[in-house]
């Protein structure tokens, strides 16, 4: 059993932030529970359970989507089903169906493993991250800052991730996330998220992110540049080749480094093709 000194059940965000401030380094927010419940030994935490702090809304605004940090993958996969994107793809393949009732978008973003799925999609989609701390302080970090290193190091003590903001998709754009795993429900051996903007069959811009291969999600800038200004079908092979060479990978029991690099190239092709199909369906 995890060693927990006390567990608090705040009824509002403000109450939660006060508790976080009060307990400082020892405060441990509890979202879906997959990290906290598995902790063994070590420090004695003060757990701040966020289930009732009112952070699970998914709201469509004029500038895009505001997703409460406590929205579960199950809710995301369902809530976004009408407009398939890299995020709905990723939310639908995090762990197993039962696990997706636990895993929250906030938890999945705050404790990032090499195999995490949602951060890969969110980096491709240009998400930003709304952080709050006691006393009404708020700040919003773009994805490149939030995921520059393990987010726990980016966030200040007492700070909570309260929402993920997704810009409204540009006209003629589409996105997709694909993952290769040993079997259903396994963590990614490799994954790729792609977002493209089309202009009359030409890729105006692309953003590609690889996950599952090593460390934090990796932006594939070279592969994306290889697509820009081209007809996708003509440039995909080159983009895959560039992705393979630019991605950094490691070997473990989910696959060897060399194979993983190769698979990232394949998945770039798969993700971009799906993203383009979606862009065209959206009227590109």
């Amino acid at each position: 059993m995890p060693e927990v000194e006390a567990l608090h059940r705040p009824r509002s965000l403000d109450e939660a932030l006060d508790l976080m401030a009060q307990h400082g380094e020892r405060a441990r927010p509890l979202a879906g529970g997959t990290t906290v419940a598995l902790a063994r030994g070590g420090r004695r935490d003060v757990v701040v359970a966020l289930a009732r702090a009112g952070l699970d809304a998914i709201e469509q605004g004029p500038d895009g989507l505001r997703i409460g940090a406590m929205a579960s993958c199950a809710a995301l996969a369902k809530g976004l089903a009408g407009s398939p994107s890299a995020l709905s793809d990723a939310a639908a393949v995090v762990g197993t169906r039962v696990l997706r009732n636990h895993v929250t978008i906030g938890g999945n973003c705050c404790v990032v493993y090499a195999w995490s799925d949602l951060p890969v999609a969110l980096r491709a989609l240009g998400a930003s991250f709304e952080l709050a701390s006691a006393g009404g302080r708020r700040r919003v970090l773009p994805e490149e800052a939030f995921f520059a290193q393990q987010p726990s190091r980016v966030m200040a003590a007492g700070e909570l991730l309260v929402a993920i903001l997704l810009p409204a998709p540009a006209p003629g754009s589409g996105s997709a996330f694909v993952k290769l795993a040993r079997n259903a429900g396994d963590h990614a051996s490799a994954s790729v998220a792609a977002r493209v903007e089309l202009d009359g069959g030409i890729v105006r811009s692309a953003r590609l992110v690889a996950g599952g291969v090593k460390g934090m999600p990796q932006v594939l800038a070279g592969a994306a540049a290889a697509l820009a200004g081209c007809r996708a079908e003509e440039a995909l092979e080159e983009a895959a080749r560039v992705a393979e060479s630019e991605v950094d990978s490691t070997s473990d029991f989910r696959g060897g480094a060399e194979w993983r690099k190769h698979v990232v190239g394949v998945l770039v092709g798969d993700a971009v093709r799906t993203a383009i199909d979606r862009a065209i369906r959206m009227g590109a």
Partner: peptide
């Protein structure tokens, strides 16, 4: 839900 991943007190 997996009851092994839930803290009862929460």
């Amino acid at each position: 839900h997996f009851s092994c991943l839930l803290l009862a007190a929460a």
